[in-house]
């Protein structure tokens, strides 16, 4: 091997080592820090342990929004039209938050089955519906259709 080639070999090996280190770090960060996104149906199916942080996506159920007068804490129900999850939130709600619109909340389930949110995001677009909700909506309809057909 010529010196140039040897140097190039070292360089390539160095780059490979660096890249694999970076990949390993990224992968471990992924395992640790990726938050899962769940719909009310998945929560009802027991896919989420209490205390675990995750993102809840769905539509705000019409007529479910409530707030004790004068208190910053608000309560509402997130639904994917098959199952529902009550949510509580003690911060300022985003401007686009409204009943019947899509919402994504970050937080955890408490012991009583309420989702305690620490962040609530609403969408820029009023027609927007989280894709997972749109899908579970179709599933939900299919399932209820089957049920009514069977019983």
């Amino acid at each position: 091997m010529t010196p140039t080639r040897r140097r190039r070999l070292y360089l390539v090996l160095g780059i490979l080592a660096g890249a694999s280190l970076a990949a390993a770090l990224a992968f471990s960060a992924f395992r640790k820090d990726v938050t899962f996104f769940h719909t009310p149906s998945e929560i009802a199916a027991g896919k989420v342990q209490s205390g675990q942080s995750f993102r809840l996506g769905g539509m705000v159920k019409t007529g479910s929004f409530a707030r004790a007068p004068g208190s910053i804490e608000s309560h509402f129900v997130v639904t994917d039209f098959a199952h529902e999850v009550p949510v509580s939130y003690a911060k300022v709600l985003p401007d686009l938050f409204r009943e019947g619109a899509g919402v994504v909340a970050h937080g955890h389930m408490d012991a009583r089955g309420t989702f305690v949110a620490d962040e609530v995001l609403a969408k820029h677009d009023e027609k927007y519906m989280p894709p997972a909700v749109a899908r579970s909506l179709q599933h939900g309809e299919a399932r209820t259709g089957l049920k009514s057909g069977g019983s």
């Binding site: 992924f30 640790k32 820090d33 990726v34 938050t35 899962f36 996104f37 769940h38 994504v104």
Partner: peptide
Amino acid sequence: LGTLSVGPPY
């Protein structure tokens, strides 16, 4: 593999 959400913690 499920629906992920990758945010600032990552």
